[in-house]
């Protein structure tokens, strides 16, 4: 099981739009709620009401400040969960076979009943996508909501990950990134979707859509300036213009029959 499949039938994953994510943490808590109640052991919390609260989460939202060479600093909200890598080092390092990548959809999972909680898989993951649950002593990670996406007890529209269903801004997209015709693949192609730490050679399935260019409005003034040409220099002239402009309004030139 620890061997990666040579290829997977599909490459299910997430596409996260950094241009739209407002950093609301909805996906974080929705994920916590679903996965506490569902797949495997609950996501526990230690010192829940005390000095140093800490708990297991499968999805976290960071934020970064980017200072371009010129112009204002920008802020980017940055959700991060397991990227379901094609060359997932977390799988091959696992001594027990608890970590595996599914052949049918490429989802990387932990079989909790085999996991010894050695932590090595988390050590090998560049993205911090795995957290060892302190109460249960086993490794937890994003399941891509494998217990939702095929779940026949859910209406068809709801067979998407919990974080995707809940994201208010619609910044999270789910689909088959192995199929070039899927909506997610098209989005990635259109928007230049990128990999995190490509140099690690993990070949992440999840992609990130980069923020669009910002603060461009000043540069447009040259094109837009004619729009602002004054209609008259004097306030009096302004009223003269007003008179003429009103006359030109449609529907007003002939009598009051309409």
């Amino acid at each position: 099981m620890t061997e990666l499949p040579n290829s997977t039938d599909r490459k299910m994953g997430l596409v996260i739009d950094l241009d739209t994510c407002v950093g609301c943490h909805a996906c974080v808590i929705s994920c916590k709620g679903w996965n506490t109640e569902n797949y495997g052991a609950p996501l526990s919390d230690q010192n829940a009401y005390g000095a140093d609260p800490s708990g297991t989460f499968l999805n976290r939202v960071h934020s970064y400040e980017v200072q371009p060479p010129e112009g204002h600093a920008q802020l980017v909200h940055f959700p991060k969960s397991c990227l379901h890598c094609e060359d997932a080092p977390c799988v091959t390092v696992c001594p027990t076979g608890a970590s595996y990548k599914r052949v049918e959809d490429g989802i990387v999972l932990v079989n909790e009943s085999n996991c010894i909680g050695c932590g090595l898989c988390a050590w090998s993951c560049p993205y911090g996508a795995r957290e060892l649950d302190l109460a249960e002593g086993v490794m937890k990670k994003c399941t891509l909501c494998v217990d939702r996406i095929y779940n026949e007890n859910l209406p068809e529209v709801d067979r998407v990950p919990s974080c995707v269903r809940t994201c208010p801004a619609g910044a999270r997209h789910f689909g088959d990134l192995g199929d070039p015709d899927s909506d997610v693949s098209k989005l990635v192609a259109e928007r230049g979707g990128m990999d995190l730490m490509p140099e690690m050679g993990t070949k992440p399935v999840n992609k990130y859509l980069p923020p669009r260019p910002k603060d461009q409005i000043d540069d447009q003034i040259d094109i837009l300036a004619p729009l602002l040409a004054p209609v008259a220099e004097e306030p009096k002239g302004f009223l003269g213009w007003l008179d003429k402009a009103l006359d030109k309004l449609p529907g007003h030139s002939e009598g009051g029959s309409n």
């Binding site: 609301c24 943490h25 909805a26 974080v28 808590i29 929705s30 916590k32 709620g33 529209v157 709801d158 919990s162 269903r165 809940t166 994201c167 208010p168």
Partner: peptide
């Protein structure tokens, strides 16, 4: 989870709601 038919949130839910 959010109620998809609801006029306000149409299924989505924020962190607090969840």
């Amino acid at each position: 989870e959010g109620n998809r038919d609801h006029p306000v949130n149409k299924g989505v839910l924020c962190a607090k709601g969840s």
